[in-house]
Design a protein around this nucleic acid. Sequence first.
RNA 1: CGGGAUGUAGCGCAGCUUGGUAGCGCACCUCGCUUGGGACGAGGGGGUCGCAGGUUCAAAUCCUGUCAUCCCGACCA
Length: 567
Amino acid sequence: MKMSQLFLQTLREFPNDAEAISHKLLVRAGYIKKLANGIYTYLPLAQRVLNKISNIVREEMNSTGAQEMLMPFVQPAELWQKSGRWNVYGKELLRCVDRHENQMCLAPTHEEVVTSVVADIVNSYKQLPLNVYHIQLKFRDEIRPRFGLLRGREFIMKDAYSFHTSQEDLDREYEVMGRTYTNIFKRCGLDTRAVQSDSGAIGGSVSHEYMVLTDTAVGENDVFYCDECGYSANSNHADSFLPVEIVDGGFVEEKLIDTPNVKTIAELSEFLNVDSNCILKAVAYIADSKPVIAMIRGDKEIEETKLLNALSALEIRPMENDEIISLLNSYAGFISYRDVDASKVKVLFDKSAKGMKNFVLGANVKDKHFVGSNLPQGIQFVDISCVKAGEYCPVCKKPLKMTRGIEVGNIFQLGTKYSKPMNACYTDAEGQLKPYIMGCYGIGITRTMAAAVEKYHDDFGIIWPKEIAPYHVDIVPVNIDDEVQSKVAYDLYEKLNNLKIETVIDDRTDRAGVKFKDADLIGFPVRITVGKTISEGLVEFKTRNDGVVIKLTPDEAIKKCQEILLN
RNA sequence: CGGGAUGUAGCGCAGCUUGGUAGCGCACCUCGCUUGGGACGAGGGGGUCGCAGGUUCAAAUCCUGUCAUCCCGACCA
């Protein structure tokens, strides 16, 4: 490709509306262009990167026996009503109506379609197991798209779906997919960690997320992990062993005391001169329009995803102050589980409350707390708290570490969550109708591209891993009008391309500085400069990742390219 | 959904306080010159100032509404 022909524009300055470095660089280097909030055009360079990632995904998926197909992006509501998700998916599902007044939606995922297609075609256990996948657009109308491609509304995803006759066979496939995912990301130049996670709107029981670990805010997930035993989990799912399990508040008898204007745990802790873990905190929520009180030890916080799951609710939000008064007959800062009408208000106790004795508790009255309270017998405890730094691994009790992660892939065991309601069955060897046991496996192709940029860049631009770089080599003739330089450069260009080394020649008449800046910004793994050293028969060979420059003859440069760029 | 900010040429911005012919840098086109890290000179093209109302002889500028975008939060009593 001649640089003068390449459809792109590099910008001298970063775009103003981008925050994440991958977003800034992909826009500035001419890879993507925003059309609307969370919706981007992938320009030719980006398309090449996406194709490379997709091809790695294809090779690895195909090698496991999975088969590629392609499913529709626009889907009828009917299917989603059948699975029961039409009413629960919420506003992320972009709905529309066609000219015949049929309700339709843009695909946020493809469980419904694939289940219905397979149900029509696969009737016998002899046709199972099956794993089919496609690489296709998704649309999720996110509350807040951000960070460019990392959280867009429209994005490209590889999603695979497997169908089995037994849980054991699903377990086997799940293992295979897990290994395959690690390989796929490794081939893309990315180290990932598989972490246990909440299964969210997709549903199912077992699931793992594949995280690219990063220290920056764009890693939207907190990951807790243990170096000792390998435990790792998303914060929305992580469990922990508390440093202090049994806490005695030390108040010998229960008393009602005045705590004027002492509302927060920190204030209360200071006012009474007790540790925050001696206070039993109440947090009030509205879950699917019903009031809920979550009781938790004062030094711990509620993990709302866990709470949502514990309640089997679709939606939760913290209670407003006026609702605390009207629904709980209580007062913000002084809420208690006691004296609430159990038929109207659901009360949950986090497992952190289990070891508490003689603690401090709200009195459901403004400016009053109890001290020396104890829990009644027979309480069921649930895990609805966040893990905090300094807590211990739930498996081996060694200290847990935390980091941020970008989720680039996930795998789920769905079981019969979709096959049952959609009545998607096969006939087993005994002639019985059975619902398929399913798994699903996703990879964010566009997000993987952005994650690679997050991981590999410097002040000058992107540093692509060679496996997913849009082109391998950029040839820069310092002065394209110089006959000798031009001839050597074009000769190299032709030879490299003939060797299947994807090469760009910067044939523009611009000065060398412009070409060098663009080469660094775009992130070609190798740059070959044809300049004044050509008088000694030498060109300069520069690798982007380490910045090392060596002088070689053109033939040596070609050999070097083959050596480092082709496996 | 709350809070904050911003909408002026493809990109980055000034102008608005105090209304009076819409500007600058980059990019683009022409000519010259230059060619090892985003040169220089001269000339040129491109914008219904987010949109809709209102005030005014006159609105990018003042007022009202609206839409869009970005950031923070969805906080824990």
